[in-house]
Amino acid sequence: MTVYFLCAVLLTMGLYCLVAKKNIVKKVIGLVIMDYAVNLYLIIVGYKKGGVAPVIERGMNSSMLERFVDPLPQALVLTSIVIGLGVLALMVAMCIRIYERHGTFDMSQISKLRG
């Protein structure tokens, strides 16, 4: 259970960074950390003790199939990682635009400035 708890600690730290920090790049970093925590959690849920990677090789008998780790979370996480990259590119583009318009990354100063 300690592994799950450490994952939750990672997720909570990302959430704290997302909520409490004022710098936009720090907020993006917090979102990336939350992404990592969720991906790691899903893979850990699918891990089987003494498990091997779900790749069948030539001449493998059917008793080896019982030792495979759960392949379904891996398939979901594979798509999640690439989506995370696309969303990160979108967020960095927004950060660059905000910096160009306001000249700062600080949220409190951005909300004070008008126009």
Partner: peptide, 20 residues
């Protein structure tokens, strides 16, 4: 036991570093 995800995470991480 997830070499698929490990490869993808490795190469995506390089791009995350460059983009950030």
């Amino acid at each position: 036991g997830a070499p698929d995800i490990a490869i993808t995470q490795l190469v995506v991480e390089v791009l995350v570093l460059i983009i950030l």
